[in-house]
């Protein structure tokens, strides 16, 4: 098409907010068990990242890889693709992140998760809280059905927010490789929510900005260069 420049973002939105939110209702209703199990795992693992625990460096990226794969196949592929022609590309983006997460889970020098008390730790903790507690409440608080709650571990936005929270609580080399895909998703999601007239759109932008800022501050402070002593 030769006139893409003349399209505004809202011209490209091909579904209504009502259809979008009902996707989560259908998804949660059909797959309530895996979605709740993944949420429970997410809560347990969110508790693991506070103190330095030996296996967390492998288990957390491994669990996040499973979550991302589930979001990609369970939600994006099965539910989002029929209403959004761009969804297959998003599945590709998620597949890349699954690869990166698996890489971190198996690499010899794994990441170390621990509370450091710095800016990134606070932001990371806040994001985990937002992903696990606040985001799912948005559905019922906005007058939508409980069944439509977007859950950490199965719905894209809270999974991305929680992933970024965990990354900010991690330390180790190559940690930055985990950032580009979630940050890119934040921008995509924010644009989608924005054209759907959803106030919550700004949250994803703030999440992206805080993640990049936290990553940059850690870089400056030497947090990402090595493991904790």
């Amino acid at each position: 098409m030769s006139e893409w420049w003349s399209y505004s973002l809202s011209d490209l939105l091909m579904f209504s907010p009502r259809v979008y939110y009902r996707l989560f209702e259908g998804f949660n209703t059909a797959f309530w068990l895996p979605n709740l199990v993944l949420l429970a795992c997410g809560i347990v693992f969110a508790l693991l990242v506070w103190r330095r625990i030996g296996l967390a460096g492998r288990l957390v990226p491994g669990m996040l890889a499973i979550m991302w794969a589930w979001v990609a196949w369970g939600f994006l592929w099965r539910y989002y693709t029929p209403v959004n022609l761009a969804a297959p590309w998003m599945v590709g983006l998620f597949a890349v992140q699954v690869g990166v997460l698996i890489g971190h889970a198996v690499r010899p020098k794994d990441l170390v998760f621990a509370w450091r008390g710095d800016f990134s730790s606070f932001v990371g903790a806040g994001m985990l809280f937002a992903a696990i507690v606040v985001w799912p409440l948005a559905a019922p608080l906005s007058g939508r059905a409980w069944q439509g709650a977007e859950l950490f571990g199965s719905a894209p936005d809270p999974t991305i927010i929680g992933t970024l929270g965990m990354i900010l609580l991690a330390r180790g080399t190559w940690r930055w490789t985990l950032l580009p895909v979630p940050v890119a998703w934040c921008l995509i999601s924010s644009a989608t929510l924005w054209v759907m007239d959803q106030d919550i759109a700004w949250v994803m932008l703030v999440v992206a900005w805080l993640s990049v800022l936290g990553g940059w501050m850690d870089q400056k402070n030497g947090v990402t260069r090595g493991r904790l002593p």
């Binding site: 009902r22 259908g26 309530w32 069944q147 859950l151």
Partner: peptide, 13 residues
């Protein structure tokens, strides 16, 4: 929430 979600999800959409 977990209890409520479980109850809610068990019903049809």
């Amino acid at each position: 929430a977990p209890y409520a979600m479980r109850m809610a999800f068990a019903q049809n959409a």
